[in-house]
Simulated assay, not measured.
Amino acid sequence: MSRPVALLLLMFLAGCGAMTRGVRPGTGQEKLRAIAASTPVMLGGTLPAAPVAPPPPMPLRGISGEGLGNGIPRAVLHGTHFGDIHGWVQGCYAPKATVAREKPVRTPPAPLPAPEAGSDRDKESLGRLYATYTKFNPKSSRHYSGRTSMVVDLRKPLRPQAEQAVATRDSNHHTDESGEPQSPGFRQAVLDEFDVGTALNYANRYSDIAYWRVRGREQQLIDFFGGAQSDTREPYRTENVNRGVAKDNPLGRLFHDAASKKWGQIHPYTGD
């Protein structure tokens, strides 16, 4: 066997020698020179009768876990392209590391913060509703006229809220004021008219024209059904003991005119 062929065979078996990852550099070059020196060369074009088999390759000293298995280089274990001898010798076809790509974790958008109680956003949707109502007593055949107010949600239908305000006021009759109907024979209170203002605090009610209208409407109702008992003699014609607006109230005429403009006059003004 010629020297080049033997050298190529040794390179194939050695698998890059000290160039392989995980193999500690040894005396591979000196051993290759010794093997090459002992290999017979063709003289006169004739081969020796029996070719001398090359000695077995020196065992490679590998590091545990670095890609050697039973002395086989990493390049062989990982599928080296044998057709590219030069590339095999130079790079040994180190395996490519596979990096797992993590999928990006999508964080859901943070929920928007809820508005605080009493915030400007809440206040914009609220208002104060003022309403008038009547109660009838079938035993005496007389009416009682009154008014009430309640903070309401302006985004919701107003009439059901007005009816609720009257029902709430009706349930509190006989307990919080004097001069109200005392007979248990009164029927349920009935909504008359209502209007809405912006005074969430009842102390600011005089800033609402709606309050002025309801005050005038209440007095007109009392006068329409026969007048307060304080204005008439017996037999009384209404269940209202006192007027809704005192005769000498300086705002009485303004209350009356505001109600008449909104709902029409149902009785002439009776104040001084």
Rank of each mutant, 00 (worst) to 15 (best):
V105M: 01
R3S: 04
R121Q: 15
Q164A: 15
G17I: 05
R253G: 00
R213K: 12
V23M: 05
F82M: 14
P268S: 14
E66T: 13
P51M: 08
P59S: 08
Q164W: 06
D231K: 12
E124K: 15
A114W: 14
P4N: 06
A50T: 10
E66H: 12
P109A: 12
W212M: 07
R33A: 14
K31A: 13
R24L: 03
P268N: 13
P184V: 00
F186D: 07
F194G: 09
C16M: 06
L10I: 12
P160L: 04
A258D: 08
Q265L: 07
A189V: 04
L251R: 12
Q188P: 04
K103H: 01
R233V: 10
G44W: 11
G71E: 09
T46Q: 11
S149M: 13
Y144N: 02
D248L: 00
P113M: 03
V105K: 09
K262F: 07
P40N: 00
S145I: 06
G252T: 03
R33H: 11
T270Y: 02
G197A: 07
A258Y: 02
D248S: 00
L10V: 13
T46P: 04
P268E: 14
L77I: 14
G185C: 00
Q90H: 10
I63V: 09
N242D: 01
P138T: 06
D248P: 00
E234G: 02
V214W: 00
D272W: 06
W263K: 10
V196N: 03
P160T: 09
T98E: 14
L129W: 03
G227H: 08
D120E: 15
D122L: 10
Q164C: 02
H143L: 09
V152I: 15
S149Y: 06
R121Y: 12
T39K: 07
G71V: 05
P111G: 10
A131P: 07
V89P: 04
S140E: 01
A259H: 03
G244R: 02
D223S: 13
T46K: 10
P160A: 00
R101I: 12
E102C: 11
K123R: 15
I35L: 11
F136P: 04
E116N: 05
A34Y: 09
G185K: 08
G79E: 05
E234H: 05
A117G: 04
H173D: 11
A75M: 09
E193H: 15
S178Q: 04
T107S: 03
A34F: 02
G118S: 05
N70F: 05
H173K: 04
P59L: 02
H174F: 00
P51T: 05
G22L: 08
A14G: 11
E30C: 03
S125W: 09
H86R: 10
T198I: 10
D231F: 06
R215C: 11
P57Y: 05
D122N: 12
N240V: 07
D272F: 03
A34D: 11
R213I: 12
D208W: 07
K262P: 09
H81P: 13
Q220D: 05
A18Q: 08
P73S: 15
G179Y: 13
M1W: 07
V23A: 01
R142S: 05
I209Q: 14
S178Y: 09
T148M: 05
D223R: 06
T132Q: 15
P73M: 06
L47A: 10
F136W: 14
A75K: 10
A246F: 02
Y211E: 02
G264R: 11
K247M: 01
K135M: 12
Q90F: 11
R33E: 14
